[in-house]
C-alpha cells in the first residue's frame, strides 16, 4: 500500500487545514535545525488523521505550526479557508479561539475551574453563548454528565482528557489538534478518549488531527501520515496497528541504513 508522499487534495473539497511548502528552521546559520522541510499536506473535513514519526521527526512542530501556536519560516498554513501568513498575534489568538480546538498530552485544564467551566472556557473567553443542543450532544458523548461540577484534581487522567476533548469540540472548530492525548493514560482510559475522538468524527462530522507514536492509537484513525527528518515520507489509509507498526519499522530501518531520503517532488 505504498503511496506517494504529499497527497494532493480531493478535487472540489476544501480541506479543513492545509500546509503548503511548510518549512520551519530553529536557530540560524550553521547551527540551524530544519525541523520541517517543505511539508505540504491537506487535512480533509470529517477525517481523523494521525501524524506519526520517530522522535525529532518534526511531528509536534508540524502540529504547532498548523494550530497557529508557532510561526513558520517559509510556506503557508490555511485553516478553515483563512491563510495564517502575516496574521497578527491578536488575529491568531482569535483564530485559535474560534477555529481550532486543542487537546494536549497533559495539563489540559485550568485547575481552578470545574469541568463544565473548562469545557465552556473558549466560548466564555470569546463572550459567546454555547449552542445548547451541541453542548448537550458533546456532554452526552463524552459521558461525564455527573462529573461536570468537579475540579480537574478530582477527575481521573482519562476523565481529564475527555473533558479536554469536549472543550476542544464545544466551539465547533474547523479542526481539532490533539498532541499525544493518550500519552499519560493507561489502556482503558486511552480507549475511552480515542473512542470519543472517533465518535466526534463519525457522528458529529468533526476533523481531528492527532500526533502520536502509539500504533494502537493510530489504529483508531482514517489515515496516518509518517514524518521523518522534517519531511512527509509516507501515508497510510485505514490503518491497523500491525500495518502501522510495519510501516514504522520500515521507515526506521531506512533511516538507519541510508542517508536522508531524496527531496520529494
Amino acid at each position: 500500500m505504498t503511496q506517494s508522499p504529499a497527497p494532493s487534495p480531493v478535487d472540489g473539497v476544501e480541506p479543513a487545514a492545509r500546509a503548503s511548502g511548510l518549512t520551519k528552521l530553529y536557530g540560524a546559520g550553521e547551527a540551524a535545525v530544519r525541523a520541517l522541510d517543505h511539508v505540504s499536506v491537506d487535512f480533509l473535513r470529517g477525517e481523523f488523521t494521525a501524524v506519526m514519526g520517530p522522535s525529532g521527526s518534526g511531528k509536534s512542530t508540524l502540529m504547532h505550526c498548523l494550530a497557529a501556536l508557532d510561526t513558520v519560516t517559509e510556506g503557508d498554513v490555511v485553516i478553515g479557508g483563512t491563510s495564517l501568513a502575516g496574521m497578527s498575534d491578536k488575529a491568531l489568538t482569535t483564530l485559535r479561539r474560534d477555529q481550532v480546538g486543542f487537546v494536549f498530552q497533559s495539563f489540559n485544564l485550568v485547575p481552578t475551574l470545574t469541568a463544565r467551566e473548562n469545557i465552556l472556557l473558549p466560548l466564555a473567553i470569546a463572550g459567546r453563548e454555547p449552542d445548547e443542543t451541541w453542548y448537550d450532544t458533546v456532554i452526552t458523548a463524552v459521558g461525564l454528565a455527573d462529573r461536570l461540577d468537579h475540579r480537574p484534581a478530582e477527575l481521573s487522567g482519562g476523565q481529564q482528557q475527555r473533558v479536554a476533548s469536549a472543550r476542544a469540540l464545544v466551539s465547533r472548530p474547523s479542526i481539532v489538534f490533539a498532541d499525544e492525548p493518550t500519552g499519560n493514560l493507561d489502556s482503558v482510559a486511552s480507549a475511552e478518549v480515542l473512542s470519543f475522538l472517533r465518535r466526534s468524527v463519525d457522528e458529529f462530522d468533526q476533523t481531528v488531527v492527532m500526533v502520536t507514536h502509539d500504533p494502537l492509537a493510530a489504529a483508531y484513525t482514517d489515515r496516518v501520515i509518517f514524518l521523518a527528518d522534517g519531511r512527509v515520507v509516507d501515508e497510510l489509509r485505514h490503518p491497523t496497528s500491525d500495518s502501522v507498526l510495519a510501516r514504522m519499522a520500515a521507515i526506521q530501518s531506512e533511516a538507519m541504513s541510508a542517508p536522508p531520503a531524496a527531496p520529494e517532488g
Binding site: 501556536l69 482569535t94 486543542f102
Partner: peptide, 13 residues
Amino acid sequence: REVGLLRAVGLSR
C-alpha cells in the same frame, strides 16, 4: 503552563 493553556485556547494578551 496554565497561562500557556489559556492563551492556546484563545485568551488574548
